[in-house]
């Protein structure tokens, strides 16, 4: 049996893409394999680790828990879309550099997208709120302390600091 292919139009980081994929293509795989946007990482593939987190209409969602065919009608932002228009690092990316918020970097794309959306919703998080913002993402390297610092630093940068 040959598998039926679907024409899917995805809007990612402001650009429209047309792909032909089977219905079972996970959005994470569509981004990485079909679009070549390998910034989105895949760890557990069942929603637990958060490495694959992208923004769907601005809200963080697991790209491994969506099928690409179902992602039409949405504006998708991946980590590749977080840099400033001039190519310089976005506030959250800059804060990760300054605070050593990453080691191997595997988890980082998911943290960057999650925190970007989190700070949009709450630009001045308390320490507790900063911790809560990243509670759904796993990192096996950093021990999280520097990631929490990076959330707080990104909030400062966002406020003009």
């Amino acid at each position: 049996m040959t598998e039926e292919l679907h024409d899917v139009r995805l809007t990612v980081n402001g650009s429209a893409y047309e792909i032909r994929v089977p219905a079972r293509r996970l959005l994470s795989d569509a981004l990485r394999h079909d679009l070549g946007l390998t910034g989105t990482h895949v760890g557990c593939e069942h929603g637990v680790c958060g490495a694959c987190t992208i923004l769907v209409d601005g809200s963080p969602m697991r790209s491994c828990l969506m099928v690409a065919v179902s992602a039409v009608d949405h504006e998708i932002t991946t980590v590749e879309g977080l840099a400033n228009p001039d190519g310089s690092l976005g506030a959250v990316q800059q804060a990760f550099v300054e605070c050593h918020g990453l080691q191997c970097g595997f988890c980082t794309p998911g943290f960057l997208t999650t925190i970007t959306a989190g700070l949009r919703e709450n630009p001045t998080p308390t320490h507790e709120e900063a911790r809560d913002m990243i509670a759904g993402n796993l990192c096996r390297c950093t021990g999280y302390q520097n990631i929490v610092k990076a959330v707080e630093r990104a909030a400062e940068i966002g406020a003009g600091g």
């Binding site: 996970l26 069942h46 929603g47 491994c64 828990l65 969506m66 065919v69």
Partner: peptide
């Protein structure tokens, strides 16, 4: 298929293999 937050992990782990998804 609604939010897929329970169904898609089951599909990926092949604990479920429906013939069709109605999104």
């Amino acid at each position: 298929l609604a939010g897929g937050q329970s169904l898609v992990p089951l599909l990926s782990m092949r604990l479920a293999a429906p013939a069709m998804l109605v999104d």
